[in-house]
Design a protein around this nucleic acid. Structure first.
Lengths: 134, 134
DNA sequence: ACAGGAAATTGCTTTTTGCAAGCAAGTGAC
DNA sequence: GTCACTTGCTTGCAAAAAGCAATTTCCTGT
């Protein structure tokens, strides 16, 4: 959890942008959080087609920031697996509010009606339910 | 509200990233939402030192996306003023969850204790109170 | 008409991204 | 053991975006 680079400011919005304010980082977090992905290859296979050098860079950065940890699979110790730390899991409310906003404004959103309805009607219970699965 | 560029996907996270997934856009939204800024010069004066060409580009983009509207001040019709649309104001819950996360993990955060406490204790009331001021 | 300020635009350099190819380490079949 | 295969990266290079300083345009009040 390095975090020892010069900050533009300690505005909370800016702190977040310096952590995950780019076009790719939140997609990796999404895959870890909602799509049961855990390996380099898993992330590469996502629909948005991240390139290998960017993926490697972002995973390294997320590790340095303490949002993700790197380990190996017990069943196959050559397989590298990434997972969210508490700091990473705490991004859940942000991810859900983003989903709500995009669900409202993107006419072609992939987010399902039922999920959006659940989010609208009882956000707190939905958060609790997801956390219970961790 | 153009939105007619090729999307990487219609994943809600990705849609949001394509709207404001860069190092500067959310700072402009922050200034409009919380800091009573409205003009080009106001945004330029913010602590993070955005450069003029990037600012002009992002304002244009935000307008195209329907998040911000551009107008002129009645009292001085040479003065351009920007303001949030409903789509922009609907980013409030995201902004607050980001503030909460950064407030938790940035030891040097600018976010005040009292604001963070209010956010923790009654998020919904805080949102309602801010909306009431719009 | 002119001075002044606000809102950009332009030109140039540096940094970051995107893409394809290559490579190293571990594993599984034989 | 060795050889093909998979996984997890690294490298090189071209293209795009960001950063920075200087310049310009467009009001507008005097």
């Amino acid at each position: 959890m390095a975090d020892n680079f010069p900050h533009r400011s300690h505005c909370p919005i800016n702190y977040a942008l310096e952590s995950f304010g780019d076009k790719w980082t939140l997609l990796i977090i999404r895959d870890l959080m909602f799509n049961d992905k855990e390996s380099y290859g898993d992330f590469l296979a996502s629909g948005e087609k991240i390139s290998t050098n960017i993926l490697a860079d972002r995973l390294k950065r997320l590790e340095e920031l303490g949002i993700v940890t790197k380990g190996v699979k017990e069943s196959n110790r050559s397989r590298v697996v990434y997972s969210l730390t508490q700091k990473g899991r705490d991004l859940l409310p942000i991810m859900l509010e983003i989903t709500r906003w995009s669900g409202k404004y993107d006419a072609n959103t992939y987010a399902s009606r039922s999920f959006l309805a659940r989010l609208e009607q009882d956000r707190d219970k939905l958060i609790a339910a997801i956390r219970a699965g961790w």
